[in-house]
Simulated assay, not measured.
Amino acid sequence: MHLELTTIIVDEYDPAIEFFTEVLGFELTEDSPAVSTHHGTPKRWVVVRPPGARTGILLARADGERQAAAVGDQLAGRVGFFLRVDDFDAHYQRMRDAGVRFVGEPRAEPYGRVVVFLDIAGNRWDLLGGL
């Protein structure tokens, strides 16, 4: 058993794909047309994954007012996603250079180095690395 996917609601597909692939270094593993949304607009099945990972993220374009209101606040302001990287400094610098918004500065914790960043939708993530 394994967790296949989790969903992040986004405003638009293509900017979200660009953020996850070009800024975070994920792989686009699927981008297929899907059945129309409840409101009749076209939708896509878009999955991104960290290189070599089994678990992916389904990027779901908001459909309707309720989902649009959840963009960037899916976890009520808490950190809800955790990205562990081998080279914290290099990944942090690459993300800073790409304009990623960070909440605070990197700090050392018993489990490694950590800094909170916001994804393209505004959700909070921990960027984690070794000490």
Rank of each mutant, 00 (worst) to 15 (best):
T55S: 15
A76Q: 08
T29G: 14
V79R: 07
V35D: 14
A62E: 06
L58S: 13
E22M: 03
G40I: 08
E22N: 15
D86S: 12
T6H: 11
E22P: 01
S32D: 11
E65K: 08
E65V: 11
G52D: 09
A34F: 05
V10A: 09
E27K: 03
Q74S: 14
V23H: 07
E4C: 15
L59W: 09
E65F: 04
E30A: 12
G64Y: 08
T21S: 05
A69N: 10
D11I: 00
A68L: 00
R84H: 10
P51G: 10
T29K: 05
A60M: 08
S32A: 10
P33G: 10
V71G: 03
E30Q: 13
P33C: 11
R54A: 12
S32K: 07
E27L: 06
R49V: 06
D63G: 02
F81W: 11
E65C: 06
F20M: 02
A70D: 10
F19M: 04
R84D: 10
L24Y: 01
E30P: 04
G52H: 05
V85A: 08
T6V: 13
G52P: 05
R66I: 00
T6P: 04
A62Q: 04
A16W: 02
E12C: 01
D63Q: 09
V35L: 02
E30S: 14
L83C: 05
E4L: 13
V35S: 12
P50H: 06
K43A: 12
H39M: 06
I57M: 09
T55R: 11
L83K: 02
E4N: 15
T6G: 12
Q74F: 02
G25V: 11
F82Q: 11
A68P: 08
D11R: 14
G25P: 02
T6C: 07
E18M: 00
F20H: 06
V23A: 06
D14S: 12
Y13D: 10
G52A: 11
V10Y: 09
S32V: 00
D11G: 08
L28E: 10
G72N: 10
A34H: 09
G25H: 04
P50G: 03
W45H: 14
A16T: 05
T7P: 07
A62S: 07
V85N: 09
V47C: 07
G80F: 13
A34M: 13
E30I: 01
V10S: 07
G77F: 11
V85C: 05
Q74P: 02
S36A: 15
G80W: 14
A53L: 04
F20E: 01
Q67I: 12
D11W: 08
R61C: 01
T6M: 10
L75F: 15
L5V: 12
L59H: 11
I8N: 13
V35G: 12
A69F: 01
K43P: 00
D86C: 10
A60T: 03
P42Y: 15
E27I: 01
E27H: 02
G25N: 02
E4Y: 13
E4V: 09
Q67Y: 05
W45Q: 01
G64E: 12
A62N: 03
Y13I: 09
P33W: 09
G77Y: 11
P42Q: 11
L24D: 03
I17A: 04
Q74Y: 02
V85D: 06
G52K: 08
A16M: 06
Y13E: 08
E12P: 01
